[in-house]
């Protein structure tokens, strides 16, 4: 008999596959904070910049939103996660900073240390 546990395991495997098919295994994963507080601080515009960059041909990047991690005074926050490296966490990201993160970090691999949390 198929138990609920069996069903959930199958569902999880399917979910992971769907996430992977969206590009989760890209070299860099970018997470933009999108809770009420972050949106109030301007994260929608920041998200827009990253979307634009991908539409303009930026590849090997997985873009996702996330909830509030709790760093209210540093919002909007953006994380760039790369397997095997310390995740890079940017605070107070503006659309201008987002564009620079795209150019310098996502394209050239340079961590912009002065904006780190």
């Amino acid at each position: 008999m198929v138990t609920p546990i069996d069903i959930i395991k199958k569902k999880r495997a399917e979910a992971v596959n769907r996430i992977i098919s969206k590009g989760y295994l890209s070299t860099k994963r970018v997470y933009v904070g999108m809770a009420t507080c972050e949106i109030a601080a301007g994260s929608k515009e920041v998200m827009g910049e990253f979307r634009q960059a991908i539409a303009n041909g930026l590849t090997d990047v997985y873009l996702s939103q996330k909830g509030c991690a709790g760093r209210c005074n540093l919002e909007p926050t953006v994380e760039v996660v790369e397997e095997g490296k310390i995740p890079v966490k940017y605070g107070k990201v503006t659309p201008e900073r987002a564009r620079e993160i795209v150019e310098r970090h996502l394209k050239k691999g340079e961590v912009i240390s002065e904006w780190l949390i």
């Binding site: 999880r12 979910a15 992971v16 996702s64 909830g67 509030c68 991690a69 709790g70």
Partner: peptide, 16 residues
């Protein structure tokens, strides 16, 4: 535990 880590609008993230 998942706040600020997963995409809250995607159930796949939670399932994973």
């Amino acid at each position: 535990r998942n706040c600020g880590i997963i995409d809250p609008e995607n159930i796949d993230d939670y399932l994973s």
